[in-house]
């Protein structure tokens, strides 16, 4: 058993195979939530994930498509096939 920090959200996920460690994402972030990795060529560390505004500037700047941004679970909206609604009403 170990002690672990419980995070309310992890806004950014880096694909380490795609990331070239250029830190352009870090430089594009107006809130400065990332710091450079200690290992050259590796993704930056998301040091202040709670401060993320979820604007997506980091993803827009990434030259290799290595970053995915995801809102916390509570903010993921529901969507449905329209036909499922009409089917429900007909049933």
């Amino acid at each position: 058993m170990v002690l672990r920090e419980t995070k309310p959200a992890e806004p950014l996920a880096f694909d380490t195979d795609k990331c070239i460690g250029c830190n352009r994402c870090l430089e594009a972030c107006q809130i400065d939530i990332m710091i450079p990795s200690e290992e050259k060529g590796s993704p930056p560390l998301v040091a202040f994930p709670d401060e993320c505004w979820y604007c997506g500037a980091c993803v827009m700047e990434c030259p290799t498509g290595a970053i995915s941004l995801q809102h916390p679970l509570m903010n993921q909206v529901r969507w449905a096939e329209k036909s499922s609604l009409t089917a429900r009403s007909e049933a």
């Binding site: 505004w53 979820y54 604007c55 997506g56 993803v59 827009m60 941004l69 995801q70 809102h71 909206v77 529901r78 969507w79 449905a80 096939e81 329209k82 036909s83 609604l85």
Partner: peptide, 25 residues
Amino acid sequence: EGKTMVPVYQYLNNAGFDPTKHVIQ
């Protein structure tokens, strides 16, 4: 619109949302 390209448009498109078939709650 600001903060929609990635977190809304791309995210929902990648999740399979199709505006010709699906409706958003």
